[in-house]
């Protein structure tokens, strides 16, 4: 059996005046229904660009997209990268759905919440406006908006940030999608509201048996919800594996560095943080060799200056993790501090 979504060698680049922006490079992964894949990485590492490609939301004329992203639907597989645009449009909102980074940009300010939800539902269902509003109210109740039958008539600006995010989730789920991509769904929210929303997403995933891709830069959130994790850096997946492995036996110096650099609320010793030096490279003139080399504190351990000359491939390591790094298993153990 193949997973619900299979992404293979997906590459997205944008020709610009300054040169070609290689935003997302040779991305391969899969997610099945009922499973949560988290995507972490710093700003500009290609998390959103990759998701938008899967949703078929890039302008095909001004964007170079290669590779495939196959949805294994009951009616048969469809590659959303090569399928005709109108066919992909018919999958959006139904087979696959997305919650966007900025909820205000995704909600129309002049239409009521109910009208917007009802429109989304009526795209795929026979029913009049009244039926649409009934369904909208049900969805608002499901995502925990109090007084749903009254609030359904209100406008986005009358909702708080947390409630807008709930509306976004209601909108994304109104047609029972099989795949949900949530792009930083809680980044703009306070922690107490964040935990409500994460719980809601978990409940909804169970209810609809969805495949979920959760994009975030918060390693705490990832630890809480992910079954598997893709760690991205400068447009590439640099490490891929099950969540526990990523946290307890990270196989890439970037992941190791990230985990060392974050303070933890449950660790009170006040040890100095171990920062990753430097900053990510420009995606226009990516350096030869490993994109992380300039910030990597272990690169000089690799023989023949290989990190500077040869880009590492995404290889399987001992613990069934994939990592893009030239270090040997023994060197990785040392890099993890003996673990």
């Amino acid at each position: 059996m193949s997973a619900f979504l299979e992404v293979k060698n997906l590459t997205v680049s944008f020709p610009t005046e300054d040169g070609l922006v290689q935003a997302s490079n040779d991305i391969s992964f899969s997610v099945d229904r009922g499973e949560t894949l988290a995507v972490v990485g710093e700003s500009g590492s290609g998390k959103s660009v990759t998701s938008l490609a899967i949703m078929g939301l890039h302008n095909r004329k001004s964007t170079n997209i290669n590779g495939s992203a196959i949805l294994n639907l009951e009616s048969g597989p469809i590659d959303v990268i090569s399928a005709p645009e109108d066919q992909v449009r018919r999958l959006r909102g139904k087979a696959m759905s997305m919650i966007f980074q900025d909820p205000m940009s995704a909600l129309h300010p002049y239409y009521s919440i109910g009208d917007q939800l009802s429109e989304a539902w009526r795209l795929y269902n026979k029913g009049d406006k009244k039926a649409g509003h009934k369904r909208a109210t049900e969805m608002l109740e499901l995502v925990g908006i109090p007084d749903a039958s009254k609030r359904v008539k209100e406008f986005p600006h009358q909702f708080s940030g947390g409630m807008r995010q709930r509306v976004m989730i209601a909108m994304a789920l109104i047609n029972n999608p099989s795949l949900l991509i949530a792009d930083e769904p809680t980044t703009a929210l306070d922690v107490t509201v964040q935990s409500q929303i994460l719980q809601l997403l978990k409940d909804m995933q169970k209810e609809f048996n969805m495949a979920v891709i959760l994009i975030t830069h918060d390693l705490g959130v990832v630890a809480e919800v992910a079954d598997r994790v893709n760690v991205m850096y400068a447009g590439k997946i640099v490490e891929q594996g099950v969540a526990d492995g990523i946290y307890y036996k990270p196989d890439h110096p970037y992941t190791i560095g990230l985990l060392n650099s974050i303070p933890r609320v449950d660790q009170l010793e006040g040890k100095r943080l171990i920062a990753i030096p430097g900053q990510p490279p420009s995606l226009i003139n990516l350096p030869q060799g490993c994109s992380f080399r300039k910030r990597c504190t272990f690169a000089d351990q690799v023989a023949d200056n290989l990190c500077a000359t040869l880009a590492p491939s995404l290889d399987m390591k001992e613990n069934a993790h994939f990592s893009r790094c030239h270090l040997t298993e023994k060197q990785l153990v040392a890099a993890r501090g003996g673990k």
């Binding site: 107490t192 390693l219 705490g220 630890a223 526990d244 985990l259 933890r264």
Partner: peptide, 19 residues
């Protein structure tokens, strides 16, 4: 409510979810 970057601790922690 603060997430901890440690899956085992994260799963075991009791949360007080504010309404």
């Amino acid at each position: 409510a603060v997430p901890v970057p440690d899956p085992k601790i994260g799963r075991a922690r009791e949360r007080i979810i504010l309404q």
